[in-house]
């Protein structure tokens, strides 16, 4: 019971702190990480995470902005800070290959909508948490892992690892690992369970996401 409660709290927190889903890119960004920029990746990655967190707090925690404005800002920040196409595909796991082009497009749309709907408003609950970078290490294949601690006003610090990669437009987060729980893996397992329960049909997940986001089925 201890473990369950604690891990749930941590996962919840991770979802609040760092989100990883987001805007729809119709065209997937090709992977441009080469060994030559590997060095770069690990040296500035920590700074990138600090900046991202600061921008999120200053832009989204402001209680005076409207929910719509907050959603719009959240969307922009996600687009800039997270490798959304890669994350979305990862979350669909092997079913990405089995999905039709139409299903993929709808999935990406719903994925974004669900994310914005769920997480943008969490920033209104911001209570002075601070992010402290502990270390940055190479994560293989040009990736870097930024290990950080989320310092809360009360309670123990929470370990958050940001897995980042550099592409042509700058750094992008592709996973957030909270106390050992990867957000991407958790979501992939969840989506996979929904699809399996729907008899292996991707549309089963789409139906669930439609219901969750209040989207109508496409005609």
């Amino acid at each position: 019971m201890i473990d369950r409660r604690r891990l749930l709290a941590l996962v919840g927190l991770g979802l609040c702190v760092g989100d990883w889903q987001g805007p729809v890119a119709a065209v997937a960004a090709p992977e441009l990480v080469t060994p030559s920029n590997r060095q770069l990746a690990s040296s500035d990655a920590g700074e990138f995470i600090v900046t991202l967190a600061e921008r999120a707090v200053t832009g989204l925690a402001d209680p005076s902005i409207t929910p719509d404005e907050r959603s719009a800002r959240f969307r922009t920040l996600l687009n800039q800070g997270f490798d959304v196409p890669a994350i979305a595909r990862f979350a669909l796991g092997r079913y990405w290959r089995l999905a039709s082009e139409t299903e993929r497009q709808e999935y990406l749309l719903l994925f974004e909508k669900l994310t914005v709907q769920t997480y943008a408003k969490r920033f209104t609950e911001y209570a002075g948490e601070k992010l402290k970078i502990v270390q940055t290490r190479a994560g293989g294949e040009g990736d870097a892992v930024v290990a950080s601690e989320l310092l809360r006003p009360t309670g123990p610090a929470v370990k958050v690892d940001w897995r980042v990669r550099r592409d042509e437009t700058g750094f992008k987060v592709f996973d957030v690992v909270v106390e050992g729980v990867s957000m991407s893996v958790t979501q992939r397992d969840e989506f996979s369970a929904v699809i399996q329960r729907a008899g292996g049909k991707v549309d089963g997940l789409l139906a669930t996401l439609r219901e969750k986001t209040g989207n109508a089925a496409p005609r």
Binding site: D3, E190, A193, V194, T208
Partner: peptide, 11 residues
């Protein structure tokens, strides 16, 4: 969207 699966994976 599937709380059971979320808990299973995270656990």
């Amino acid at each position: 969207v599937d709380f059971y699966a979320t808990v299973r994976s995270a656990y």
